[in-house]
């Protein structure tokens, strides 16, 4: 109204959610998986911090990337880690990847009517030694895939992955066929390109990039040797191994 009053009674409600930007992605290879996320955390037009990790190592063969509402994300990761610890105490081994995937679905669906506002991507190595990616929606629907992008720049990155990983809209040269899995260096190059591109076009993506590489037991680490700054997180050889690679992204 002209006098500054309202024509109808106003109802204001506390909104328990916000969006904290950023993007995550994961790609599965034949015997490895790459899980990556940028490190910017933002709200609206403000960058809250340039380093807030969104990708977390769960076990020696499982890595979880979380994107959406950061407070929910952190709390969710914390509870998943707690459940995995309880599992370790009860069974004296790490929970297998597909079991973690189902656990996450159960935990998310338990909050069906007050959801964790987070998109999860779980990556790692299955018990049969194959690379795997599981992607979830906030209430627990999930599927195993070869690759997935989520978060602020999902709409920029996913089509690129569809083209580069699934070879959509690409016709193979006569007499050849597309490979079912890409080699690790190609995957890393695609991940880095995805994030540099997303950083260019999306204001909520940037600052830093963290890529976790999970290698199946017994797999050669040869290809990682040439990668600058690849740092191993797993203490022992002879099992699945996890490496992290960090890169700077543009900060504007």
């Amino acid at each position: 109204m002209p006098d500054g009053s309202y024509a109808h009674p106003q109802q204001r409600q506390f909104n328990p959610y916000t969006e904290n930007g950023g993007t995550i992605l994961a790609i599965a290879g034949a015997d490895f998986t790459v899980i990556a996320g940028d490190t910017r955390q933002s709200e609206g037009y403000s960058i809250q911090t340039r380093y807030a990790p969104k990708v977390f190592r769960l076990t020696d063969r499982a890595v979880l990337a979380v994107n959406g509402f950061a407070a929910d994300g952190n709390m969710f990761v914390k509870t998943v880690k707690q459940r995995l610890e309880w599992y370790r105490h009860a069974h004296a081994k790490d929970m297998p990847l597909r079991a973690i995937a189902r656990l996450i679905q159960t935990m998310l669906y338990a909050r069906r009517f007050f959801p964790y506002y987070v998109y999860n991507i779980l990556g790692g190595i299955e018990e049969d030694g194959s690379g795997a990616v599981y992607s979830f929606d906030p209430v627990g629907s999930y599927e195993r895939e070869a690759c997935r992008a989520a978060g602020a720049a999902q709409s920029l990155v996913q089509p690129f992955l569809d083209n580069q990983i699934y070879f959509r809209n690409q016709t193979p040269a006569p007499g050849t066929s597309h490979p079912t899995h890409l080699p690790l260096p190609d995957v890393l190059a695609i991940v880095i390109d995805s994030f540099t591109s997303a950083t260019e076009r999306h204001i909520e993506v940037g600052d830093g990039l963290e890529m976790y590489v999970v290698l199946a037991k017994g797999r050669s680490t040869q290809e990682l040797a040439s990668i600058r700054g690849a740092q191993e997180l797993t203490p022992k050889e002879g099992g699945d191994r996890i490496f992290v690679i960090r890169r700077e992204l543009k900060k504007d």
């Binding site: 916000t18 904290n20 809250q48 952190n74």
Partner: peptide, 8 residues
């Protein structure tokens, strides 16, 4: 108030 945390 949302429980959002960060460090810098």
């Amino acid at each position: 108030l949302l429980g959002t945390t960060y460090s810098a």
